[in-house]
């Protein structure tokens, strides 16, 4: 099982095999700033703080320069975790909860992840829609 920890939010999400970060976020009722969802526009940039990802498709230099990749930046729509990862979404990435029902479910699952792995995952309490200030 692969776990995506969202840096600074205390939220950990279970990633399904082959799923992009964006797909995991959406399945957890979360949205962030994005555009083409094809790796072409570069709007869904996030930073991989720890762990490893692979790009599921060729991403062109125009959308994500190699120099940026070297600094840990990637595109959420094309990034697929290859290990447990911690991902930081920049403020202009506007991460927000749009479907509290799904986020609550994801929190429940992530609390189970902690049990299963024997390493409790910190879950921040508080109103769900305020997961991250817009």
């Amino acid at each position: 099982m692969t776990v995506i920890t969202l840096d600074g939010t205390g939220l950990a999400l279970e990633a399904r095999p082959g799923e992009s970060l964006t797909e995991t976020f959406r399945r957890a009722g979360l949205m962030m700033r994005d555009g083409c969802l094809r790796g072409g526009c570069g709007m869904c940039r996030v930073r991989v703080v720890s762990g490893t990802i692979t790009l599921s498709r060729t991403v062109c230099e125009q959308a994500l320069p190699l120099a940026d990749r070297d600094q840990g930046l990637t595109l959420a729509c094309r990034a697929v975790p290859t290990s447990d990862v911690t991902v930081a979404i920049p403020p202009d990435g506007k991460l927000r909860c749009v479907t509290p029902l799904l986020t609550a479910l994801a929190r429940h699952q992530s609390s189970l992840i902690g049990d299963v792995m024997g390493q409790p995952v910190a879950i921040r309490s508080g109103p769900l829609p305020e997961l991250v200030p817009a």
């Binding site: 555009g35 083409c36 072409g40 526009c41 498709r57």
Partner: peptide, 8 residues
């Protein structure tokens, strides 16, 4: 919509 490369 977007093609698989991100062309609109």
């Amino acid at each position: 919509y977007y093609d698989p490369s991100g062309n609109r």
